[in-house]
Amino acid sequence: MIRVENIFKKFDDLEVLKDISVNFEVGRTNLIIGKSGAGKTVLLKILIGLIHPTSGKVFYDQTDFYALNKKETRELRMEVGMLFQGSALFDSLTVEENIRFPLDMFTKMTAKEKSDRVNYCLERVNLEGVNNRYPSEVSGGMQKRVGIARAIVMQPKYLFCDEPNSGLDPKTSILIDKLIQEITRENNITTIINTHDMNSVMEIGEKIVLLKDGILAWEGSSKEVLQSESGVIQDFIFASPFLQKLKDMAIK
């Protein structure tokens, strides 16, 4: 579980996050949603320590993340996997070398053990036979899956995904969403996804946190979204007439 307590973040005079407190639950896909500029990327970066909060605390289970020293932070980060919006695969390394990278850096596994682990992860994300290709030689959807494989190779306890569906077609987006949800359940990890993809919200939103202007505006699950009378969630989720019609049909 990841717990956020009274997070504030200011950039000069601009207050981006205002008193955010929320629990992200273990074994579930937790979604941070909100319009562009709502503060969701900043919150995600604060959760993983790429940006420090102005005040407030982040707890990984019982560990106060911002009270750790550098060495302890690095140790904790070995339990963290992250899928980046642009996949962030290293161009000069092959798919296999990308996935193996954390194993090379931090484990004493033999070459055979590493190779087995890489192949298992590739198999898990339904990608086989691409070990020796470079990231530029595979499609965007495949790159995302390689990114997921790299994120899970160290068997993380916490998985962060920044816009996992950006730039993907709807069908591939659903595959990626399902894959993340399955991996979360199988390994009982705390997964936090930053998205504004409405399919993801409805399909895998086991816990949804809606940010608006830096404030936690709504909390609930995808089931509760449909029933919610909250103007904020209506305004965001069912912004388009098409989705509004779908919602009306679902309620009927």
């Binding site: 980060r77 963290v80 850096m105």
Partner: peptide, 18 residues
């Protein structure tokens, strides 16, 4: 720019050193 350094940081790599 391509977030490779962020990716390494999150893995726990001392990026300046590496």
């Amino acid at each position: 720019q391509k977030e490779h350094i962020d990716a390494m940081e999150i893995m726990g790599v001392n990026t300046a050193s590496y």
